[in-house]
Design a protein around this nucleic acid. Structure first.
Lengths: 196, 196, 196, 196
DNA sequence: AATGAATGAGCGTTCATTCAT
DNA sequence: CATGAATGAACGCTCATTCAT
């Protein structure tokens, strides 16, 4: 009974932080990092510019936090999709589907990872690169187990192209057209024909 | 006699303009549009910030000019490569090779087209989008004539993925590794196996 | 029984207040008043910035409190040194020695009085000036009783120069060089020769 | 005739810079470095805050420029006073008189050197210390040639006390009281009696 | 007594751009 | 064509302080 007080304060605090993150994710995705000012983010959640610094030490740290959520969301989506699939091609397609759905639906966070380059925040570059790498690592075993016609194919090379192709969908995807799932199916079908 | 003065003056002017373009291309490619200031560009060519406006009406117009050169360079490279090739797959591979070479070698201009999004310069967005589209148009007939296993395949969709994959090379390409030509050959070989 | 709680709590409170004072003295002496933030002081004692206001009404009042300790320490040192000395020159030298030792050894408080000007805290200026004056007053009788060669000398004027000279030692004193006591002896010896 | 155009522009430019310097000197002297904002300085000369940066790269560089003028003024005053005097004590007194007059009359610049500590501008500390040292160096030969009763006296030590005493006059000097010249005469007379 | 989120004002500085010279 | 001082707005951030908890 009496316990509700503390959690409620904590919840309100967390919710303010979350509001800032959500708004930053939206703006970073939409306008990019440099074109989004701290004032933009704060005024969108009804705060004064200085108040952001109760939650994040700097604009760069805010970006890192958005990146972390983005990577967490897409990583988790891919990991759980892969866990449910049987067979190497099926796992690969499941991963691509999950990747595209995370990227193209609802949440803004994963798109920030694609749009905002680590170079945009020099002081946080290493953290951002590490986060990106940690995600790419998920795909490596999936790629490795793929039974390709040419077993000596450069799979690291192919993986980079695959991710490049998938991420480029963010620039032309429209909700009215093919769904992320359909895009992924078409994409993998093309590759699979090539490989077998 | 008296006419010689004008051309020589014009030539000097053009060369200053070209210096600004070259420097802007280098900086936009390296740091992006927002992270590059008019000051950066001017001081790199030994000018004061205000002097840029003798050559370009605004920073956005400077970007448009860089875009134009970038599109012109890569378009011309692709067009002439395609003209020299026989057969649909050969033409397609020639186009991809020329695209990658234009993107990854020597000139900074084409990379600016890939790195700087039209959204970064709202006032020039339409021009930038039109330039991008004019380039993509070159690939459409090449894609159309490709003899795919599934003749009903969505070729517009495939084209976007292909260009996305090719452009993503800018983020990981290193001069010490595979050459652009090699990358293109591997890439097309994979697709060709898939298609036939 | 029940009374023991209160004193112990009070003691804890006092100790927190003292920690803040000590840290403020150190920082005001080292970096000056304006260059020291409330944050600096609080974080150095493991408090949050707002918590200072449980102990002091404002940053200016904190400065006043530090000043008070500084004046108290140096006044007491000088007074007790003077009490132990015989003869006007001896008393004067004892005062100078005590002044320099208070200023240059261990405690940070008296140095704050020298470094931080009353003007730095406009709202507390009068209090700070009064504290400084109360200290200078200790020297007045010592100066008055000094048997100078020229009995009509302007002793108020000399006193200000003496204190100015003594206080300037804070800018160049190094613990490895002459001790405060030695500096004082040399200094008074010079003056004494002049006077007699 | 035609030459007047260029100089007049230059003169106006220089005069804006000089206005900024004068105002900065006044404010730094009056309120200190930290308590004076760039906005204070600019608005006092009818400029916008950003416009200062056409003349000085930073607030610290503005301080350095003020310091330089202050050191130049007082150095030149002392040097020319010394050149006109005969005899070691006469030269010493001339130097003290010039020092005090430079410090206490008309110009604000030299007082800034006394009031603002090198520590206040960490990025410019070395320059400020070097400027201070360059001034002190002027006094060294004057001190060295002084025929003291104790020829083995620590003249470096005495010099620091002398300068400390002289500079402390800035805190209590009032134009209605003794003139700088009178203060210097009294001061040197005291020392001279001591020495001979 | 202490927290910590929030305030409101202000900081030093940079920006793209203008314009008289 | 180029200068360079100036603009006006905005930048990321820090400040002393408040107050509900």
């Amino acid at each position: 009974m009496a316990q509700t007080a503390a959690p409620s304060r904590r919840r309100r605090t967390d919710s303010r932080r979350r509001e800032l993150l959500d708004e930053a994710a939206w703006l970073f995705r939409q306008k990019g990092y440099h074109a989004t000012s701290v004032r933009d983010v704060c005024s969108a959640v009804g705060m004064l510019p200085g108040s952001l610094y109760s939650h994040f030490a700097s604009k760069e740290e805010l970006l890192v936090a958005v990146y972390e959520v983005g990577i967490a969301e897409i990583s988790q989506a891919v990991a759980s999709a892969v866990a449910d699939a049987d067979g190497p091609w099926e796992r690969f397609e499941a991963a691509c589907t999950a990747h595209l759905e995370a990227l193209l639906k609802s949440s803004d966070y994963p798109q920030v990872v694609v749009r905002v380059l680590p170079d945009d925040a020099p002081g946080a570059k290493d953290q951002l690169v590490a986060l990106r790498d940690s995600y790419d690592a998920i795909f490596v075993p999936l790629m490795t187990e793929l039974p390709l016609a040419d077993p000596g194919a450069d799979r690291g090379f192919l993986l980079r192209l695959v991710i490049g192709a998938l991420n480029s969908t963010t620039t032309w995807f429209r909700p009215m057209g093919d769904s992320p799932r359909t895009i992924a199916r078409k994409f993998v079908a093309t590759l699979r024909e090539a490989a077998e």
